[in-house]
Design a binder for these strands. Structure first.
Lengths: 144, 144
DNA sequence: CTTGACCTTCCCATGATGGGAAGCTCTATC
DNA sequence: GATAGAGCTTCCCATCATGGGAAGGTCAAG
């Protein structure tokens, strides 16, 4: 099948399939005489694996490791578990950061009239920076 | 003061100060004859405002609105509150996405021996995609 | 043989941030 | 006054995963 059908049946866009090939996450696809990429059921299975890992928030780097382990029938499950748990710890750290932000903002908003009057503790806090209630905004925080 | 001191006292890197000026979040700084940017206490206050908003996860777009409201002494607090609560809702949506991922992965890891044996439900799930326990991986999800 | 869907590569953009090069300016010390 | 070193300037590049779109080749149905 061509890349379009592989994309539809795997849930990975054609753009991303080409990208994954270019960065070496997946092997170069076979080509027709005209240069079209072709995929078989096996390739689509790999793409599905990638899509599920991606949906669980794994980075390309982590997916590279997971794919290698998937293919390695003699793998040690400890290795897979370690990657998964490291990822969980990473996710939980991000959750805590976000919770700190939400808590601070909710608190401030709770004290804001939210009417036509100009007084607003949210703005006041941003301007003065009194409350240091949010999770410590250390390095490494990225939004979206 | 020059950009270096403004960066140190505001907590916003010189790189980012130039970036914020270039994209129009802050006004063009005054310049010395030699072309050096100069900042006064007022400018540093603005930069501090930006840093705090950034630490709370506001995007540049949201910061633009918040800065305008900060300067507008006749603002309606309802407007500020709306931006803050919209942002909280956005944060909470991201938290739920992350929690779904962490839950699924923790569940899978809990059933993985994590030893020298190759059997691993984490890999099996990625390969087969049986459990659809994670938050629906709709469009718009971005990692980090 | 034309039409339209599909494929190819290539370049650009995102958002917020940092790295680094090449070159100019300022200040302190000799 | 010269020199060293810190600090400033602009410009370009990279990140990460993803999409948009242009220019042009290919294929299948009518």
């Amino acid at each position: 099948m061509n890349i379009g059908e592989a994309a539809r049946t795997s849930g990975v866009s054609a753009k991303m399939i080409r990208y994954y090939e270019r960065i070496g996450l997946i092997a170069d696809a076979a080509r027709t005489e005209a240069g079209y990429r072709t995929y078989d059921r096996n390739d689509v299975e790999t793409l599905r694996f990638i899509r599920r890992a991606r949906d669980l928030g794994f980075s390309v780097e982590e997916m590279t490791a997971l794919l290698a382990l998937w293919r390695d029938k003699g793998r040690e499950s400890a290795e897979v578990k370690r990657i998964a748990l490291d990822h969980v710890a990473d996710i939980e750290r991000r959750i805590r950061e976000l919770q700190g932000m939400a808590r601070t903002l909710s608190h401030l908003a709770g004290h804001c009239h939210g009417d036509h009057r100009p007084d607003c503790p949210i703005i006041d806090d941003l301007a003065e920076g009194v409350a240091d209630e949010a999770a410590p905004p250390r390095s490494g925080f990225r939004r979206r």
